[in-house]
Amino acid sequence: MRASATRLSAKPSRTVFYSVAAQWDNLGDIEIRNAALGWVRETSADVIAYSGSMPPAYLAAFDSDEKVRFVSSPVRYQALLWSHLLRRRASIVFAPGPQVFGPSAKAIGKSLVNLINVAAVRASGGAVLAVGRSLRGRGGLARRVEAVVVSVFHLYVVRDTRSAEVLGEDLVNAPDLAFAHDFGESNAAGARTDVVISLRGDRPVGVEGLRKVVGHLRSQGLNPVFVTQVKRDDDQHRDLGHSLNIPTVLWEDHTHLEQLERARGAYAHAGVVLSNRLHALIFGIQHGASPIAVLDLASDKLTSTLRPWVELRVTNPDFDRLDDSEWPSVEILPPVGQVEAEAERARVALADVERQFLRLLDTSKNVSLAEATV
């Protein structure tokens, strides 16, 4: 992105506007939004975070303090944003995750609102930042509008290699923000013989193929376990666990924070994670488990996000092959230390982004964007 000679306001009273609203039942959404919020909280800024319809248990899973104020009303949030920016007291950070643009009037309207907001904040001297984004969409006009929105940002970082192709622009790429957390010290010592399986409840599963894989894993002394990271996957995990005689870590009536800790506990004992959910794979990688992606042919989300940073093996929803080989011919567990080294490389790459992010956002310093912008 082009550098700018504009300077950020050095006033410490500037407030950062952010959003934590996402899928209320998805631990991955909490993980990445909490990571970005943590970066913001390293500065001197107060935070006004849009929460929408997120339930209290969802919000309780975030690391927040008295400097973070949750606002559920979109009208109130927008009014507060403009009240602050008219007094030159606003910066804005777009939450990590997917942004889908398209040719519909509603989608283009949303992009135009984003453009007005970020242009106004930047004109007022505030920082306009986005990290961990993922762009998907279609339509010539929609793409051009979104490209203009992206061009206004001081820092705009995507988490995958596909986003730049979709937008038709050069974009900065870095790992997904879930890689920011290091759980190495919490991992189980010694042999890690569990295989975490976490599957989307809205996708077909080749049960007989999975049954054969489970039998092969057990013949190798490995212990499959179903782990729910998205609450709506509970029903399928429960049914598959019963059918295949596999233990489960279901969400059920647990709070978001409780299920987050239970899931992490399962990954801490895993040598492999088998999933078609992006953040199930990353949670596993965080804890040293080798990722095996169950690929949906209609989506490149998993490969475009993970393959720049880790060795990713793949299978299909029928589980008939692992990469191009039969399951029995493949060494399931990774070489000792391989996954940990890949996870550390991703964390180092994110740390570089974080330093740029903080130089731009820390309102207690007089920072030149020409020095700090990618």
Rank of each mutant, 00 (worst) to 15 (best):
V158M: 02
T193E: 10
A351H: 06
N187G: 11
S186W: 15
S198V: 05
R347A: 01
T193Q: 12
V225D: 03
F70K: 00
F357P: 02
D63R: 08
L37G: 03
V336I: 13
V214M: 03
N34R: 07
P56V: 06
S163M: 07
V230T: 09
L360E: 02
A107G: 05
K110G: 14
V214H: 07
L59N: 00
R69N: 11
S290V: 03
V374T: 12
V272I: 14
T248I: 01
V68C: 07
L257K: 15
A343L: 00
S51F: 03
T193R: 13
E342M: 06
P204F: 02
E326Q: 13
A349T: 10
D29Q: 05
L199E: 03
F283V: 08
L260S: 15
V374A: 14
N223F: 13
T15L: 00
A266K: 03
P334I: 01
L8N: 08
A79S: 09
T248D: 10
V249N: 10
T161A: 12
E371C: 02
E208C: 08
I32Y: 02
D324K: 12
A189Y: 05
S198A: 14
E311M: 07
G288S: 07
P96F: 04
V348G: 07
N117C: 13
E146Y: 15
I246K: 05
H254A: 12
I108C: 14
L112K: 09
P74N: 04
V128A: 13
V158D: 09
L240S: 05
E146Q: 14
R162Q: 12
P96S: 01
F70S: 04
L244W: 01
S64W: 11
D352N: 15
H154Y: 02
V71E: 00
V195M: 06
L369N: 04
E344R: 14
A147P: 05
A346M: 05
P224A: 04
L250M: 10
L358H: 03
T315W: 06
T228M: 06
A349E: 09
L240W: 01
L59G: 00
A289N: 05
Y50N: 04
V339M: 04
I116Q: 13
G215S: 09
V128P: 02
A5N: 13
H287F: 06
D63Y: 09
L312F: 00
D63S: 11
W39A: 12
S72F: 02
D253L: 03
L85R: 11
A372S: 09
R7N: 08
P12H: 08
L8P: 07
V68R: 00
R321L: 05
E165Y: 11
K231N: 06
R122F: 09
L112Q: 10
K212I: 07
S4H: 07
A3D: 15
A36W: 00
D25L: 10
V157S: 11
I48K: 08
G209C: 03
R211I: 02
L37Q: 03
T15V: 12
V207L: 08
H84R: 15
D29F: 02
H181L: 14
P103W: 01
I92L: 15
P334L: 06
L369D: 02
N117G: 07
L115D: 10
P247G: 02
D160W: 00
L361N: 00
I282S: 03
G241N: 09
G125A: 07
